[in-house]
Nucleic acid binder design. Structure first.
Ligand SMILES: [Zn+2]
Ligand SMILES: [Zn+2]
Ligand SMILES: [Zn+2]
Ligand SMILES: [Zn+2]
Lengths: 142, 142
DNA sequence: AAACGGATGTTATACAATAACACTCGTCTG
DNA sequence: CAGACGAGTGTTATTGTATAACATCCGTTT
């Protein structure tokens, strides 16, 4: 099951690099901000690059944050699972095959055929759970 | 585990009724459109009502659609699972306790403590799958 | 009476995404 | 070679989603 990968354009590469370097989700406008002065001046360019990268499975869109992250292990999956720390903004991409199967099973019980599954968990990461201990500083998303 | 329910205001009741009557997701601006002429003229009022209803567990926000639906079985859950038909717009709220437990288990492997779990499946409902049979009319979201 | 919480109104603004159209460039093709 | 084509981009404008900030109202509490 080899995945054919189209070569990336200048802008697409640049966007992917920025996301990888950030190591956290960035909004399209965050990216646009970083790309101003490099010849990219308007939203459509950024959105088009992101669209391509998502199509290629190199980037995921986090629906609950309106933001994008570089895929941690580009393996061309229709399903992405994320644990999002509402305190420090850390996002961890999880992979769990049984979960994917279970989700497909649950939905198909009602005759549903899933083509795209998104799972986003909000809460607190290990570090922040340890620190906060029930209550503490207000949540932020960086 | 009885859930204390604050009484709803006029506007909150009205928004919930509109969502229930629609039987499908509505955006905040859809709701605002229906409420103009009833004394509601600006987004904040709608968003505040929605915020309250979501807090009370009577309404869910669909992150991947930027829209809201009335909870099919208001049972005050932190977790909601939705199957969204990209063809006809039908949204089905699923409940599966084992899934919730499995998700908690998967995330807690990495020390994550989830407070809110969002699962949204996109694909085709039973009716549309039967009709389309592999390919057919373009998807729409109504 | 004064303070308070909850809801609302109002204006303005920020943030997210797309429409529509023109242009370039490399590749394929007759 | 000329022309068609696809992918990417630039540009301007617009639509859609959500919140900030501040003022008002009202019923309850003290
Ligand atoms: Zn991934
Ligand atoms: Zn954290
Ligand atoms: Zn529900
Ligand atoms: Zn359908």
């Amino acid at each position: 099951m080899t995945v054919r990968r189209q070569p990336l354009s200048q802008t697409q590469t640049r966007v992917l690099d920025l996301l990888s370097a950030a190591g956290r989700p960035l909004s399209a406008y965050d990216l646009l901000g970083k790309l101003r002065g490099e010849g990219v001046n308007a939203p459509p360019t950024v959105y088009r690059a992101l669209e391509k990268l998502v199509r290629e499975g190199l980037v995921h869109r986090l629906e609950s944050l309106n933001a994008f992250v570089a895929c941690s292990t580009p393996h061309h999956h229709d399903m992405a699972t994320f644990a999002i720390c509402d305190h420090c903004g850390l996002v961890t991409e999880l992979t769990d095959r049984p979960l994917q199967q279970q989700l497909a099973a649950i939905s198909s019980r009602s005759g549903f055929h899933a083509t795209r599954m998104m799972v986003e968990l909000h809460g607190h990461c290990a570090a922040c759970s340890a620190k906060a201990h029930g209550q503490g500083a207000p949540d932020q998303a960086h």
